[in-house]
Amino acid sequence: MIIRSELKKYQIIGYFILLLINVVEARSGLTLTALQLILGITFVSTRIFPLLFRNKPNNLIRGIEIFYLGSIFLGIYFNWHSSPNHLFLFFILTILFVFEKNNEMIKKNLLWVLILIMGFATIHKLLNPHFVNGEFVGFMLSKGSFFRPLWHSGLFPETKSLLSQNLNNLNDFVLRDPSLNETVTFQIGSLPFHILKMQFTYFILVAEFLLTFFLMAFPQKKITYLFILIFIASIGIVVSEVEFASTLLFIGLMLCPSDFSVLKKVYKSVFLLYACCALFYNLYWVL
């Protein structure tokens, strides 16, 4: 059969890059990851080279697609406790790419996926006392989990040294018997920690709320896609979660209207940059 899909080549290639990121990470276990790679390559080939598959029976192609989806689902099911957010997102993307041929319908679904993710992320933070009172952001800041590229840039050697020491203290602390009720005190040096933690907490809440609002109210406006781009691109700098950021950037790239050609090019560039970082980072750990 000839597969009729309105997906553009850059969208399929972007999807394939996300598949590679998930495969290199191998969070589904080795067997399922290998299966995802083989079936994923076949699935992507049916979309990029449909003529090659014109003589193949309809049931065979559909069977491959279902097995491919099944391999991702099982990867999440068997490792639900440690499956990353971007694997869930990748699963949703795959459902859409397999079952929906209409590009506009795929975009509509992705828009609502993004609205739900950001909306629930905002609500979860507002309902969570650890987040609202700044404790969570304070914890992340004081163990150096936020703004890693900044600390590793060499511009703040004193802060970097203190945060590394905090992390070492934390790693020693967690090995000690918890029933002894010991505590460990972090050092933050000259970092304006107490101001930073609250301002950054409020900034995150406002930014995520605005992002949800813009997506719902102005899904065709340039300001919305500019805001998404800045926010998602900053994920890489703040929490260094380049796999999740790449997946969200790909969704942003798909949603961004074709009229905004410059913005679309920036999306493509930042997506490729983050995807390369994700691939090299995970390859580094594997090798």
Binding site: A121, N128, H130, F136, F146, P178, V239, F244
Partner: peptide, 26 residues
């Protein structure tokens, strides 16, 4: 998990499972 898109609470890696044997040896 939300938060900066994805983090808003203590991560599962901040939870630790301890086995408690006789005489409270952990």
């Amino acid at each position: 998990m939300g938060g900066y898109g994805m983090y808003s609470d203590y991560h599962t890696e901040d939870y630790f499972v301890w086995l408690v044997f006789k005489k409270n040896k952990r």
